[in-house]
Computed example of a mutant assay.
Amino acid sequence: MTWFILVSLLLIGLVLVLTEILFVPGTTLVGLLGLIVTLGGIYYAFIKFDNNLAWIIVGAALLLNFSALVYGFRSGVWNKFALKEAITSRSFDDRLAGLEIGMEGKAISDIKPIGKAEFGERIYEVKSDSGFIMVGTKVFIARLEDNKIIIKS
């Protein structure tokens, strides 16, 4: 029964440390819990066995933990969990299509400093460069930057 408890503590500690590295990296809570359980197993070995055997168990536990980590890094297990593609799409990429600086439109809501304006047949969310603009006022596009339409009256 003593060996079962010792092996269980050491294996649970190892599994928790590997779980920290593989599934929840950066949280340190699971890894710290795994380290505490492993240290508990080592402490249990020193209580139940003589010092020579306890030091052999410490060496075996360290060897097992480090070999599992090295194997995990070299085997490519980590690559299964890594993101391999970058998201390159953007939202509203064609939002400013057909608009030009100096284009005339009409404010269809109060713009204080953000509101709605109509250019051509479409309605856009705009930002005023000249403060408050009343509904119905003629507006002009001053700048087009970062999917934003900056207007002036």
Rank of each mutant, 00 (worst) to 15 (best):
M1R: 02
T2Y: 04
L6F: 02
L6E: 00
L6N: 02
L10Y: 02
I12A: 01
I12D: 00
V17P: 00
I21C: 06
F23S: 01
F23E: 00
V24Y: 04
P25C: 04
G26L: 13
T27W: 06
T27F: 06
T28A: 13
L29A: 10
L29W: 08
L29V: 15
G31I: 00
G31V: 01
L32E: 05
I36F: 10
I36S: 10
V37E: 02
T38G: 11
L39H: 11
G40C: 04
I42A: 06
Y43D: 05
Y43E: 08
Y44T: 10
Y44L: 05
A45F: 01
A45H: 00
F46V: 08
I47F: 07
I47W: 06
I47C: 05
K48I: 06
F49R: 01
N51P: 07
L53G: 05
A54R: 07
W55M: 12
I56S: 04
V58H: 00
A60F: 06
A60Y: 02
A60L: 13
L62C: 12
L62N: 04
L62G: 12
L63A: 15
L63K: 10
N65E: 12
F66Y: 10
A68V: 12
V70T: 15
Y71T: 15
V77A: 12
W78E: 12
F81D: 03
F81L: 14
L83Y: 10
K84F: 07
A86Y: 03
A86F: 09
I87S: 09
T88C: 02
T88E: 14
S89C: 05
R90Y: 07
S91M: 11
R95P: 06
L96W: 08
L99E: 11
G102W: 02
E104I: 11
G105N: 01
I108K: 14
I108N: 09
S109W: 08
S109I: 06
D110R: 08
I111L: 04
K116I: 09
A117E: 06
E118F: 06
F119R: 15
F119D: 01
Y124C: 08
E125T: 15
V126W: 03
V126I: 11
D129M: 10
S130L: 02
I133N: 00
I133V: 14
V135P: 08
V135L: 12
T137E: 01
K138T: 05
F140G: 01
I141R: 03
L144R: 03
D146E: 14
N147E: 08
K148H: 12
K148G: 03
K148A: 08
I151F: 05
S153D: 12
